[in-house]
């Protein structure tokens, strides 16, 4: 959807645009880049979270039942507890649905999500590179035009 405003790459010859139009095209692409960068970061954050969750599920399966532990209530308050069971974990699969899985299945789920996110990140990376090229293209034309205008303006005087 973000591609719709990327009109600088094809169809329109950048040299035919006015300074103002070039400026707004550049601004548009830069805005797209900004939001794409934000998405990129949140995707990466999600991938890391899934990775950590998968590791936690795996670690849990190695623990024994009745193992004493400290349960975090807040980031600074922990309560003593005991591990009740390591056979099943509850996985949030989205939109309020939770599924009981074994730790192994749970970590597989996380791995699946991580690979999906990685795939998306790669695709996004491509789009971002393209947009970056577009921006540099537009700003090159913009600078050339500005230089031409300044040169023309000073020779008039």
């Amino acid at each position: 959807m973000a591609e719709s405003s990327g009109k600088g790459d094809q169809g329109i010859d950048l040299n035919t645009l006015s300074l103002q139009q070039l400026g707004s095209v550049k601004e548009g692409i830069e805005n797209d880049l900004q939001s794409l960068g934000d998405s990129f970061q949140s995707l990466q954050g999600a991938a890391t979270r899934f990775h950590v969750s998968g590791m936690a599920a795996e670690k849990l399966s190695q623990q024994e039942e009745g193992q004493p532990m400290l349960v975090p209530l807040t980031s600074s308050l922990y309560v003593a507890g005991e591990l009740a069971g390591t056979d099943t974990v509850l996985i949030d699969i989205g939109t309020g649905y939770f599924v009981e899985k074994t730790p192994k299945e749970g970590s597989e789920f996380c791995k699946r999500k991580v690979s999906m996110l990685k795939h998306n990140i790669e695709q996004l990376q491509q789009v971002i590179t393209e947009k970056r090229q577009q921006v540099s293209q537009v700003s090159r034309v913009l600078q050339a035009k500005m230089a031409a205008q300044q040169g023309g303006g000073s020779s008039d005087k």
Binding site: L90, I93, G94, T95, G96, Y97, F98, V99, F109
Partner: peptide
């Protein structure tokens, strides 16, 4: 929402028939 629901459906399809599924209703599962 469509994307998220599609993801959930795919996960549900992967499950065995006797798997325990819970739905979050307010604060309860």
């Amino acid at each position: 929402q469509q994307q998220e629901n599609n993801m959930v459906l795919k996960e549900l399809e992967l499950l065995e028939e006797e798997a325990n599924v819970y739905k979050l209703v307010g604060p309860m599962l």
